[in-house]
Nucleic acid binder design. Structure first.
Lengths: 138, 138
DNA sequence: TAGCAAGATGCGAAAGCTTCTCAGTTGTCT
DNA sequence: AGACAACTGAGAAGCTTTCGCATCTTGCTA
């Protein structure tokens, strides 16, 4: 249950936090910017400030409930943490995002980091391209 | 010769453009932020505005002379385009950047994009971690 | 259940990076 | 050299994100 996740993160259960988590869970899109979440709240008639949206998303990130990604669009996008790591394919025309996982790539990354004496903390692989639909409508 | 590269890009050869290209070529570091370039210019006694630095770097990027990368630090870094694609390993403590190329990863990426019907335009793989030196001084 | 302290919120202000505007300057071509 | 388009510097402005602070809530206690 939602509230439990928030409590487990050591946070008080407040209206903004419940609403924001709800939006992340119920939104059709998996990747939302802070602005997207904020607009969704306004649409629902919730009077929650943008600063709070950022604060809450940052806390959720710290608690491991969501992941933040910086795509080259200049905005950060947030997605519910599904537990398993994955990378992204982004369409530069329509901004569609596809997730994928490739064990071989993951493995090569570890090998490369080790080879350079790095201890991996995180990584981000984003492939930018044009999806079938957009290529068709070109 | 420098000037030729600028001309080939369809740009006029001006002092700011020559200086900026020179800094990119002669800097020890391969990855510089716009701010880094600007500070270097000031140190050299060149009176060139930050806006111009951004403009010129953006033009160089368009001309294929340099590549721009958005690391998660919030700043963009620019590097001279050496022709061959490569990925990055970034130390989250000291910001050291190591470049690498892994044919197998490149190949898997193409396969994955094809599998999802994407036509690749670009991609960015950044591994964030702690380098040996920083791990030692922890 | 009333009351309290720590923690959250909302608002506006501010920060950091990047781009824009515009008047004045400079390169290039003839 | 002259003309015109291109370029520049400085500051204003734009965007996303964070901060500061007075006010309000939550979760705990008596």
């Amino acid at each position: 249950m939602d509230n439990q996740q928030i409590k487990d993160a050591g946070l008080k259960v407040t209206r903004p936090r419940e609403k924001i988590l709800g939006i992340l869970e119920r939104s059709g899109r998996r990747h939302l910017s802070a602005e997207d979440v904020y607009k969704e709240l306004l649409t629902n008639g919730d009077d929650i400030g943008l600063a709070t949206v950022y604060r809450v998303l940052t806390q959720f990130e710290g608690a491991g409930l969501v992941c933040r990604r910086h795509f080259e669009t200049g905005q950060s996008v947030f997605e519910l943490n599904s537990g398993d790591h994955h990378d992204h394919l982004v369409c530069v025309r329509c901004n569609r995002v596809v997730e994928f996982v490739d064990p071989m790539i993951e493995e090569r990354q570890s090998a490369i980091a080790a080879q350079h004496g790095f201890h991996i903390e995180d990584h981000s692989l984003v492939i930018y391209g044009v999806c079938t639909d957009c290529a068709a409508n070109a």
